[in-house]
Design a protein around this nucleic acid. Sequence first.
DNA 1: CGGCATCCTCTTTGATACTG
DNA 2: CAGTATCAAAGAGGATGCCG
Lengths: 220, 220
Amino acid sequence: MVWYAGAMRSYGQFCSVARALDVIGDRWNLLIVRELMLRGQCRYTDLRAGLPGIATNLLADRLRELEQAGVVERRDAPPPIATTVFELTERGRKLEPVIRELGRWGIELMPDTDPRLAFRSYWLEFPVGLYLTDRRPDAPPITIEVRVGEDPMVIETVDGEVRSHPGSVADPDVVLGGPAPALLGLVTGKLSLAGARNRGLRVEGDLEALGRVLPDPVAS
Amino acid sequence: MVWYAGAMRSYGQFCSVARALDVIGDRWNLLIVRELMLRGQCRYTDLRAGLPGIATNLLADRLRELEQAGVVERRDAPPPIATTVFELTERGRKLEPVIRELGRWGIELMPDTDPRLAFRSYWLEFPVGLYLTDRRPDAPPITIEVRVGEDPMVIETVDGEVRSHPGSVADPDVVLGGPAPALLGLVTGKLSLAGARNRGLRVEGDLEALGRVLPDPVAS
DNA sequence: CGGCATCCTCTTTGATACTG
DNA sequence: CAGTATCAAAGAGGATGCCG
């Protein structure tokens, strides 16, 4: 069967914004890029797990289109693994500012609470990178383990920067748990520590280490 | 008739990138924002003119959704004008970084030539702001008139910055004309002045003034 | 005119089932 | 695991009509 890979509907405008949207403006496309950006190499099944609700044929279509547009690369992993992995190309990685600005803009639209929404812990990496800063870069580094959603995540101070990534850590300075909206409110400064606890946040460990990276809260 | 304003399909994810796309991810939405950002207040008909190909019912639907989401504001202009105008709200204006990063990313995907694409001269304002700089901010200001597409546009140096806006100017230092791809190539540095002329660019006036704001070309 | 609403057709999406 | 096949529902595109 031949069908010329989607033909890629275009706005037909000589404008770089419109051209960008020709390529990554279709539904799901930027979320596929988000997944690959946050998790690196992904298998087809990993992507499905991070994109709840996507139809499997749509994911296959989109990956083909993004590959053709030079945003995504497909590689057949070597023998021991024997599976296909997808990852961003250089062009795809250049979408990071777009995704980050979208995420920044979307923060104000986040619901205070809605238990029906899907959640993956690594989605918190964007707000963590945007809102947390190390106020005492010369002090010894700290680590915070976040237990929200399925998999744990680590926040750590490295050379004055605050990084985060999936995974666990031995003997963290702080352990955070509870519902995602409470944690997000704490990270963005929309909730104070007390306010976040009211919303179900659980905090164990060194509160001073936590305060070192949190922004000043603007509300309760 | 009741129809609950589009119900606004959602990805259903607790992620600010997904939330942003819930609101401005639908087809045409970001281009509507682009139009309002570049042109300010617009009438319905102005928007249609800047969005060739949009179905009229879709534009009406989208404007209602964007209004409901607090991105766009509708105002009935006072008696003498007696028409409705649309403009961005504060939240809408905050989309500027998103649009700018999209435009930056899309530059590399622009075709070298394609006469079938629609074009409006004010669409050049994004690349102008991204690529042109005043290399001699202390020298007297200069003005460049661009005659590409239907309406003229002015580029001028103001306090060391390069600004652009629709309109004309008396006695400009340089007048540029010709096909849009040639002008874009010149602005982004993908074409030298000679290369742009080969592609149909017309230049009249003070070449030195022009060189003062252009980037170093990276190719011919 | 300016600002839509309706009607119709075509394409895209979503849900589910099935396959090498 | 990495998709393809199928089908119903929703959305997009185009033409036209309506009303102040």
